[in-house]
Structures are given as C-alpha cells and as structure tokens.
Design a protein around this nucleic acid. Sequence first.
DNA 1: GTCTATATATCGATAGAC
DNA 2: GTCTATCGATATATAGAC
Lengths: 421, 421
Amino acid sequence: MRAANGGVDAPAANSRTEEIRQVAAQLFEQSGYSATTMSDIASAVGLLPGSLYHHFESKEEIAVGILAGLDQDLTRLIGEVSGRLGTDTPEDQLREVARQITALSLRSGAALRLYSYAAPTVATEKFRSAVHLNAPALQKLWKRAVDDLVPTPDTPRQDVGLLRFALQQLTLNAALNVFDTPHDADEAADRLCSMLLQGVAIEAPDDRSLNASVAMRAAQEGTAGWQSPPVSGGTSGRDDIVIAARGEFARRGYQATTVRDIAEAAGVRMGTLYRRISSKEEVLAEILLDYGGQLDRAVRSVLGTDDSVAAKLDALALIFVKAKRRFRLESDIVKFGSFDREPVIMPLADYHAETRSRLVLLEDLIAGGVRAGELRSLGDPGSYAAQIRYILWTPYQDYARAGVTRTHQFLRNSLLRGFLV
Amino acid sequence: MRAANGGVDAPAANSRTEEIRQVAAQLFEQSGYSATTMSDIASAVGLLPGSLYHHFESKEEIAVGILAGLDQDLTRLIGEVSGRLGTDTPEDQLREVARQITALSLRSGAALRLYSYAAPTVATEKFRSAVHLNAPALQKLWKRAVDDLVPTPDTPRQDVGLLRFALQQLTLNAALNVFDTPHDADEAADRLCSMLLQGVAIEAPDDRSLNASVAMRAAQEGTAGWQSPPVSGGTSGRDDIVIAARGEFARRGYQATTVRDIAEAAGVRMGTLYRRISSKEEVLAEILLDYGGQLDRAVRSVLGTDDSVAAKLDALALIFVKAKRRFRLESDIVKFGSFDREPVIMPLADYHAETRSRLVLLEDLIAGGVRAGELRSLGDPGSYAAQIRYILWTPYQDYARAGVTRTHQFLRNSLLRGFLV
DNA sequence: GTCTATATATCGATAGAC
DNA sequence: GTCTATCGATATATAGAC
C-alpha cells in the first residue's frame, strides 16, 4: 500500500525480487536469454526453479523488468544531461554526453543485450512493447550536441547526420563491444570522441590518393565477388535449405530457430531436411565458414599490401561497410551468437576466434602506424584496434539515407582525418 | 488435399490421431479432464507424453476434438429424427426421439462430461466456443414432439414447457446418471417416457390430500431451516473462507479450484488461509458434510413417516426441488466431483456413498410400493429408484420460469400421475 | 517465501512405413 | 526417396502445503 510506486513494473520494489532480477541479469548477460534457464537462475540465487514463480509470473517477466529498468535509467539520464547542456564548449558538451551514455551502457549490459538480441528472438508482444527505449529523446539529445558542434552549415562536406548516428550507436552500445568491453566509461567515451572528432591519422592522404591507393585496389578486388546476394533456387535442394536457415538464424538467432522453422521456411519436411543436412549446427558452420572466409580474404589482401597505414585503414573501412551490406544476414547471426553462447556453439566460437585473429592483425597495423608516426597515439594498441573495428563495424546501413560511398566518405572524414579538422 | 472435409477439426481424419482421441475420451470419462494427464493418455496408447504433440497441439485440443464430434453427431441426429417426424402417433414419436437422444448420450459419455463439467473448468476461449452444442435445434425438436402430444391447449393444467425441458435434459444427459448409467438406451428411454407420461402411481391421491399428508408435513418441517442462504460476514474469519471456497468449488469444480483461488476469493493471503483451515480437502469435507446432513435428515424424516408411497414420493419431490435451489452450489460441487474422481477425493466419495445409501432407502420404498400395488411395476427396483431420483434431481430451476410450486406441481402431474392421464 | 512433486510443452534427431 | 510418427531429454510452469 505504498503511496505512489510508478505504473509499470518499477524495479527495486521488493528487495528479494530485485535481487533475483539482478542475478538473472548477470546470467542473461553471460549466457544469453534463451540459454539461461529458470533452473540456472534458481540455483544461482539458491532456490528451486518453481520458487521463482512466487516473484515473477514467467521468465519473460524477468527480462521485461530488466528492460523497464534500462528505459527508466535512460529517460532519467537524458533529462539530467539535457538540463546541463549549453554551459560548456560544444566539444566538451558532446564529450560529456558521450561519457554519460557510455557509462549507462556499461551499467546496463544485460538489459542492452536483451534489448538488442533477445527482443527479436522471443517475439511475444509483451516483450516487444517493453523494449521500446526512449529512442526519440536520445536522438534529440544527440542532435543538439552534434549541431552545436557545427554552428553554421557552411561546411557541407561534413556529414552531421552520420556523425550523430555513429555517436548514438557507439555510446549506447558500448557494453556490446565484445572484443574490448570498456572498463572505464570516461576513457572509452573520450577516445571514441577523439577518434571521430580529431581522427587517427596524423597526416591523412587526400581523397584522390586514397582512391588510387594499392590498398584500395586490393579492397576493390577482394570485394568484387560480393555482388550476388544468395537467393533460393526454389528447387528445395541443399542450398535452398542453407539459404532458408540463414534467413531464420538472422531473424531469430541460432538458438531460437528450431529445425522445424528451417524446414518450413525451406518448404520441406523434416525427413527431407535431415537427408540433406546432418544437423542444425552443421548448417550454421557452413554459413559462417563461407562468410568468415570471404571477409578474411578481403581483409588479409588489404593488410598484405605495401601501403601506408592510413590507406590500409581506409581500404578496410570500405570492406567493412560493404560487408555489413553484403553479409547483412550473416552479420546478424553472429551478432545474436555473440551473446547466446552457453553451451558453446562451435561454429560461432570458431568465427569468434577468427575475428579475434583478424583483430590482432589490425592491432599490429595500428601499433606499427603509431611507431612510424603515422597514427596518433591513443592508449594501448589492443583497445585502440578494438575500438576502430567497433567504429568500422557499426551498422551504418540502418541510417536510412546512407549508401556505401557516403558512409565510406564519412569514415574518411571522421575516423581518419577528424570531423573537426 | 481431400475434397471437402468440413471446416472445423473433423474427427476421424487420421486413424492414429483418432485412436488417441478415443483413448483420451475414455480416460476423460473415467477420471475427468483435469485428472487425466498427458502421461496417462500417452501410456494408454503406448507413447511417450511428448509424442502426443505430434497429433495434437495441446491437451485442450484433444477435448475440443471430442466435443466437436458430439456437436456433429447431435446435429446429424436432429436432422434425421426431424425428417421422420409426423409418421406415427404422437406418443410413439416422442418415445422415438427419447430413444434416439438417449442412445446418442450413451455413445457420447466422454464428450457430455466434458461439455457439462470441464467446459466451465478450463475456461479458455477456444474450449468454450467449441462447446456450444446445437441447443436451439434440439429444443425445437423436443418442442415439436411435445406439442404434438397435446394438440390443443385445452388442458392448461398440464405444464408443456416443463415437460419439454425435463425430457430434453433427461435424455441428453442419460449417460451422466451416475447411479444407474443405462446399458440399453431404448429401455431407459421408454421407462423414462412411461414414468413421465403415464406416472408411477396406480392411484394417486388428489392435490388436497397430498398437501395435507403426514409425509408432506415432514418435508415441510425438514426443509423449514433451509431459508437462509450462506453469505460472507466480510470478517475474513474461517466461515468466510469456507463460503468463498464453496463458491469457487461450485464454479470450477474442486479439482480445478486452487488454494490461491480460494484465498483470493476470500480476500486473505495464503498464510492466513492455512492458519484458518488445514487443507483444501478439509474445507470440502465440511461443506459436503453439512450439505449431506441436512439433505439426509429431511429425506429420512419423510421416509420415516407412516404414509402412502405416493405421498412419500410427492414429499420427496418437494424436498429435492427445494434442495436444488437452497443447495445450488453444493449440488454443483458434487456434480463436478462425480466425474473428477481420480485420485479419489474422500469427502466426495463419502458424499457419494451417503447418496447411494439414501438411494437404497428409495429403492425399498419403491419395491414396497410395487408389492403393495400402489406403484406400477417398471423393471427392477434398483434402476427404477435410480431413475426416479434422476428425474427428481433435474435442475428445473434452470428452466427460467419455474418456481418451487410450479415445479413440484409438474412432478405430481407427470411422474406421480402421468402427464397424459 | 520456499519446498516437493508433477504437469504441459518443446526440440533435436531418427527409425521405419509407404 | 520422402515424410510420418516417434523417442529422449529437458524446459517452463502450476499446485498443495507449510
């Protein structure tokens, strides 16, 4: 009979309930929503599975509560930060927004993973509706911060829209950067801002020479075979099943996709399906091996050239931007997979390892660049490389009006040369 | 890709599926819907529980299929019987309708039990909508059959409406007469018709002497204390919990009512509830003991008088008609209970045994009456008594316009003296 | 608020009928 | 060769009782 406890599922209502929610959040963060069972949660808090239902009506309700908490926190944060806007230099202001949102992200890893990955997976209405973050308000905040940075639109070569999109994405999702989940929000946010606003190259080549570079040619050649998107032949052969599976995995994640889903999507019965494939996992392996291989070849061919670090980074940017489009489905699959990894799914783990090894190459490139005085020094090479990859790997295609060329140009004008330069 | 298989869930589609449905129907009939588990059904057909889900989407769907079968059968039967109407004497016609519907009832015991008892219990929409028998058509059929019997309404003393209601109820629910489930539909239907149309008394006293009989006085006295219906005092004491439980049991049946339902209905928490009562079963026992005791006293006081058999039957009729109103909830509880009896629920079993012992008294009364030449002889006394009880125990109060006096008068004019006499 | 017991349901995979 | 019916394991959830 408290006075006013706020309408929807306000967290921290009951301490024991809240405690369980926290534990569940941790498990969701570690193993993913579907892979975390009620038994897991129960034994983590020292209860029997059935006892959880005294606190929550369902597993879903736990996740909804966690998401509600994130929404609350975000809304509150936006309010606070907005109130402080306009009292500092535009760049410091923007950096402050980045720091605050990054900090929120790091505080809310579990919720963010649920938001980004579980929501499309467990498709019930209740979940989806709980999952609507206050995105318009956040967008407005970022728009103000970025617009202040470029007071008059007399520099039309700078892509303010994409900068806003990039910052919004990269700060809110900071916790989802699997390869270098930041420990210090301020540090991560500041480095991100430095990279985008001042650029990483000390003296970047102009567009003409970048376009004509050896690395660029390698990137063009490496991605030349990427034109054809995979389509079903309609013959219900093995390929059609793999293609159908790719679509389903991308839509719901590997774990949440059932073999029956795949069969239905491919238009075959279970019997036929299992004569063409030997297991669900095998199909995933096939998809990821092909994807990883193509990406790997392109990246390595660029890195194998004898060119400047800046030219290589620029060429890699092109590859990543193109890959995010050509391998959109595959990219979604590994996105889901990154957080649904208990029990270990071998093909995903393999892909993960491969990505990590490419990251080491990038790290070497950057370390060399810093040593050679080509790149600004911005902390340890591991985090440096991971953050560059994180920036390159952002789904810019979700920003409706951005094509490959525009996105690539934006990355040149920000990450490479610095947005403010 | 069959040509026309009828819209909704036509049974007998797949033989294995239909086989499982049949087995399930049998189990539902034996043990009730809630008490029959998917494991029970599975092991009865030699499968594992999960395998049932290849044939049915849910347990509920099995029941819905069974109900759909009944609806189909009934509709078809009504069509056939209607077509044959008007080719025979009115009484023979009516007897034929009774025989046909009774036969259907005996063929469809499981479905009827689901229809009568499970439907309000498992309250999902799908179930309810599947459960709408073609009642209007059946009513129309019976109306025609009964109206033909009394061609001109020049005998206003005869209650045509109640006769129709009684016949419709008694034939369709023949399979639900637990104390004497008929084996031969024709025999049961014919005896029912004989009882109602010709009456059981060879020479019944007139209304005046029945009203003034010793048995009637005993009935009046025995039911005198029945005026007050039980209401909650609102103090959340023990009585209020019992009263709340009574309502819940009546609405959904004992099995389907959870302790939480009772607590909520009584407005108390589980802790409080279990401090006031010791178990769900104890509450049921208390309710049924009270109910059974009151009914028993009234019945025995009538049977203990020294009066004619006809007068005693007439007095019992009054008691039953009154009891069906005063103990409406209790009557519903035992109605549910009669078919949800696995595992055995002791209080229900006790009530059942008590009822059976009263039935023996009735049997003695009737046997004596036949011997003394007071009652028509209509087969063995056991079935005779059970069927009289079945007629007396019909929920006439559901026939909207019938009060105690009208119903009692109808029973005098039909069961006792014969509707056609 | 928690336990014990158990219910309904899902899923990956396969055997074997047609 | 194709698909139906099935298994074995296990998940989510419910209920009575304290």
